[in-house]
Design a protein around this nucleic acid. Structure first.
Length: 307
DNA sequence: CTTACGGCCTGGGTGC
DNA sequence: TGCACCCAGGCCGTAA
């Protein structure tokens, strides 16, 4: 479940550990999550990792020109200006994806599907038990077109633009927050957390939010994402950053995963409902339900089973 | 056109 | 110990 804060955390870690390294070779295992596996084998060997960026929930490894020389990459951490990069490796971690460098001699952990041998003897490895992730090498117009499919970065978008986007759609606000074409990087956790903070029910329609509510949501979302980044993301199942350390933001969750627990604001029991096809956690008192929204009965789950 | 919904991919965790 | 089932995020096809 890496969402924006988790991917940002991993990107920062990789920036420290592999920026400027050259990829010597590529070894592939299962490839059904890779757009064009042969493109990786064809284009990556010899290329230098010129920048590590986050784009929504994607990790973007900007690669130097195939003929880039040592000297042209002098400034590590440096801004690889757009012209100097000819292509990028896009990595989406899906739910269970991990990417991190290891000593090449270290045995592969289970579900390792991609290995990039680096010029310092380490291997950048991608593991993904469920292979819900995605990997692709793209360059030129294909890269541009791919990136263009996505909406604004929630940390960058202005309040005006956010309000306009949200109120310009009739879909449920939860669906809008999750729609990567509207806003890039928000997933289930941070959607529910920001809606709780802004006191907006997930099933409300975007077009029916008041300007004030939409502004409140924008502020809540940005604030929560920034705090989550500081705490290196949320480790709810097995998320670990590139150094293998867990995040801490899960301790600050106010809605997500708290079904049956008391709302931090009013003490009402937090509920769970399926909204936009996803489990959604909310306080039924603080986040008043829109008219016409029938909450479907949910099967009991978890160990809180009292027969 | 926009939105809603079900199904699919996979395998770890859980209930029984 | 085994095993059926749930569920996750993104995507796609279909329906309204």
């Amino acid at each position: 479940m890496p969402e924006l804060p988790e991917v940002e955390t991993i990107a920062r870690g990789l920036r420290q550990s592999i920026l400027g390294r050259r990829i010597l070779s590529v070894t592939l295992g299962k490839t059904d999550f890779i757009d064009d596996p042969s493109a990786l084998e064809q284009h990556l060997p010899g290329r230098r990792i010129a920048a590590v960026e986050r784009y929504g929930k994607f990790m973007l490894l900007r690669l130097g020109q195939p003929d880039t020389t040592e000297s042209s990459l002098s400034s590590a951490g440096g801004a690889a200006n757009g012209d100097s990069v000819a292509g990028s490796l896009l990595v989406h971690l899906g739910m269970t994806g991990h990417i991190a460098p290891f000593p090449a001699a270290k045995p592969h952990e289970k579900h390792t599907h991609v290995c990039f041998l680096l010029d310092d003897g380490r291997e950048l490895r991608y593991t993904d038990a469920r292979r819900f992730g995605r990997m692709a090498y793209l360059e030129g117009s294909a890269l541009e077109e791919e990136l263009q499919e996505f909406g604004a970065d929630p940390l960058v978008v202005s309040a005006e633009e956010f309000v306009a986007q949200v109120r310009g759609h009739r879909a449920r606000i939860k669906a809008l927050l999750l729609d990567q074409g509207v806003l890039r990087g928000v997933g289930n956790i941070y959607a529910d957390e920001s809606l709780w903070r802004a006191r907006i029910h997930p099933a409300r329609l975007g077009s029916r939010l008041t300007k004030k509510e939409a502004e409140r949501l924008h502020h809540a979302l940005r604030d929560i994402l920034e705090k989550a980044i500081v705490l290196r993301g949320s480790s709810i199942s097995d998320f670990l950053d590139a150094e293998g350390a867990p995040g801490e933001y899960q301790r600050h969750h106010r809605a997500y995963g708290r079904e049956g627990k008391r709302c931090y604001r009013c003490g009402t029991l937090v509920r769970r409902a399926i909204v936009a096809g996803r489990s959604s956690y909310f306080c039924p008192r603080c986040q008043s339900q829109p008219r016409g929204f029938a909450m479907l009965p949910l099967p009991r789950r978890g160990k809180a089973r009292k027969a």
